[in-house]
Design a protein around this nucleic acid. Structure first.
Lengths: 189, 189
DNA sequence: TTCAAAACGTTGCTTTTCGAACGTATTGCA
DNA sequence: TGCAATACGTTCGAAAAGCAACGTTTTGAA
């Protein structure tokens, strides 16, 4: 059963309004009334889709976290011949497509829906399982390497969202990634 | 009786889709089906608001021509002490606000709805009635001056829509306008 | 020129949205 | 602290949008 077009449009309007308001004020200060007014939807319609503004936030975070996870896993799986460079660059591209939403969500920190935490966790997980599967040597803790990868990626993501894609910055990340994946690279080459 | 929000949103979606499609292909080649598909509205809804795509075009032209006319008349009426400069600049600003729509409509030439013709006629009319009311001397044909004003304004409008507001170009228009309004300016100063 | 595919435009029925009204809960200010 | 204004969240009838099916017209390619 597919979603009714009207429902799709309504949800999009609400999400867009919400993201816009997040750019103006803190999540806590945003009211449902404002979201309805800005998105031109009635209160009754809002409440027929969401329990409250927290529910809206959680659903948005879930949606984009899932999409990010799918993308990240896909990229890691498609790595051939130890070609790890380029994976992160594609992740950056993906994130840039939804720049407005991602940027807004990254700055909201509600325990039930913390996008920043989710993203970093996804990066850590995907990187770790990749290392465990592909790396022969275990001299350095894979867990440590994966955490380092995730942390560095997050910095780079935030920076790119703010300043746009920059070749020098991307190169720097590549160097760090090469260090993290050096075991793997040595074996494969 | 105010317009239902749902109607407003539907019409906006349709208009936005239409303008977007006009940027891609000729008016003649655009189908109602495409407009509906892109705007995510159903055929039945489209036909409950418009007779056909020509009706849609005519209504858009009418709406923006009226808005332009109101703006132009307001600006001309607010001229004090022969300060004619600045009137056109504000008209330019107004047009720039709806850049996408205006640009698209200016390139469609359907006899029942020719935006280019309407704009030029409005500029001519408002300028002429201003000259007739304010100008004492009638050495030069006011009709000729008004037509010149309209023609020059149209060139400037098109140019600005394409290249953005440019100080030098604006200054040039000011010089031409000063020539057109010189009778008036001499009397008032 | 013929004919099939696509676009047109209409209709009846279903689902969604709106808006106003309501009582409740929060907020912010005197 | 007390109280008025504002936001919350729900309900229900009315209006609008969607959808599928239909016959008609236009289009474009054999």
């Amino acid at each position: 059963m597919k979603e009714d077009v009207r429902v799709y449009k309504t949800k999009k309007n609400i999400a867009d309004a919400f993201i816009h308001l997040l750019g103006e004020k803190d999540f806590i200060c945003i009211t449902v009334k404002e979201i309805c007014a800005f998105s031109l939807t009635s209160k009754s319609t809002f409440y027929s889709h969401y329990i409250d503004k927290y529910d809206l936030l959680e659903k948005l975070v879930r949606q984009h976290a899932d999409s990010f996870k799918t993308g990240a896993m896909m990229r890691f799986q498609s790595i051939k011949q130890g070609n790890v460079n380029g994976v992160f660059e594609k992740i950056l591209d993906q994130i840039t497509e939804d720049k407005a939403v991602i940027s807004a969500l990254l700055d909201v920190h509600i325990s039930s829906a913390d996008f920043q935490v989710e993203l970093e966790s996804i990066l850590y997980q995907t990187c770790l399982s990749f290392l465990e599967k592909e790396s022969a040597s275990q001299e350095t803790s894979l867990d440590y390497l994966a955490r380092m990868y995730a942390a560095n990626s997050m910095v780079m993501i935030r920076w790119t969202l703010k300043n746009g894609k920059d070749k020098q910055a991307v190169n720097l990340v590549h160097q760090i990634q090469e260090f993290i994946f050096q075991d793997l690279l040595m074996i494969k080459s």
